[in-house]
Simulated scan of single mutants.
Amino acid sequence: MSSPGIPLPLKTEHSAKDRLYWNFFNMIPFLIGSIAIARDSLKWVAVYIGIALFFFLVIEFRFACTHCLYYIRSKGCVKCMMLSGVPKIFKARPGPHSPFEKAVTVLGALPMFLFPIYWLVRDPLLLVAYIVSWTLFFLTARRYECVRCLNFECPMNRVPADVKKEFEKGDNLSGSFEISGKGILESCSGRCASLRVKHEFKDFLYWNFVTLVILFSAGLAIGISSTGWLLAYIFIIIFHFNILEQRFFCTHCPYYVEGGKRLRCMMNWGWPRHFKPIPYPPGKFDLVITTLGFIIMIFFPLPYLLKIPSLLGAYFVSIVLFLLTIWRSECPRCIYFCCPFNRVPVEVRKEYEGEN
């Protein structure tokens, strides 16, 4: 059975879901920057949009994308997760980037990232949201896309060297990995190879960073109005994750038994294991209690968030990103098959259970 280090099958094609997800993710920091600039001048918003379009459609397109296999293989219009449907106005250039092309790409990106800073520093909340949104974008891309991307010339590419060689030889690793789960079925060493049988500490760091974005938005809104209710909110969070969820949901999870007396899962790494594992699926009562806990935790800060629209927007957007990312990138690989959100195909579940 596979370990956390085994790579996912390479993605030879991007689906419509990929394009919608990544362009939505990419639009968030631009929207934040535009909101900050628009408070001063709509003309400068137009300039900001022009700078971004010039970078993506000219500089990046010419000096970076032309070396990408997704660009090279596309006919007529580009088919990739970010610029799908854009006409191929530049000649494809197979092979590595030159130092000049790398320098131009970096220099072209700097104005796009730095342009809104002048307006963002006037509003610390928007500045923090801008930095966090870009950080989340790059962390998520590096974690889930760069490990199976065919753009081997990209400096962020993380596909192992041996996998690259196998792909270039025409090995079966070139099978397309779709979020629907087909990629798991087409993996190079059996249908179960892409399942995540263990979590690592870096998984915990990533997912708790994403979760803290949600909780920080809510906590800040509550704290501005009342320190007492902020303490109550913190108590609700700790009680839900450490007691309620652990007892009624986590005890049924295969990851729960990892790590002895301390949990070793991507959400609760290092927390004490208060309850004994329960080796059967959660019942309706377990799911109802867990759901009620989440509902209370999500809706508790709303009265305070409604007073601060910027924090309300950050709260809901971060929840949407959390759910979309975990649904498309973790649920198709998770061995907690009894979870109502699990998306591992039935035949893969049966094969895994037969081998374990």
Rank of each mutant, 00 (worst) to 15 (best):
L287V: 08
A314W: 09
A103H: 02
G108K: 00
L185I: 14
L150V: 07
D123P: 01
R328H: 13
A218W: 04
L195S: 10
N208T: 10
Y304L: 01
L311H: 02
V317S: 02
F63Y: 14
P99L: 01
L311G: 03
P303M: 05
R73D: 13
I298Y: 13
V86P: 04
E186G: 12
R148C: 10
F248N: 05
G5N: 15
T251F: 05
R333F: 11
L42I: 10
R93S: 06
F137E: 11
L321H: 09
S194W: 11
C265H: 06
L53A: 15
I237S: 11
V317F: 06
P309L: 05
C265M: 05
L173K: 12
G5E: 15
W22H: 03
I72N: 06
L324E: 04
T140H: 07
R349H: 08
C265W: 05
V147A: 04
L287D: 09
R148G: 03
I298S: 01
L120S: 06
E153T: 11
A218K: 06
D18K: 05
K261F: 09
T291M: 13
A109C: 08
Y70M: 02
S2T: 15
I243F: 13
G95M: 06
R264Q: 14
T135N: 07
C338I: 08
N356V: 15
H240G: 02
Y21W: 14
N23T: 15
L114Q: 05
L57C: 07
F138S: 08
L231Y: 13
L125I: 13
P309Q: 02
E186M: 11
W229S: 11
V121S: 01
E13H: 13
E245V: 09
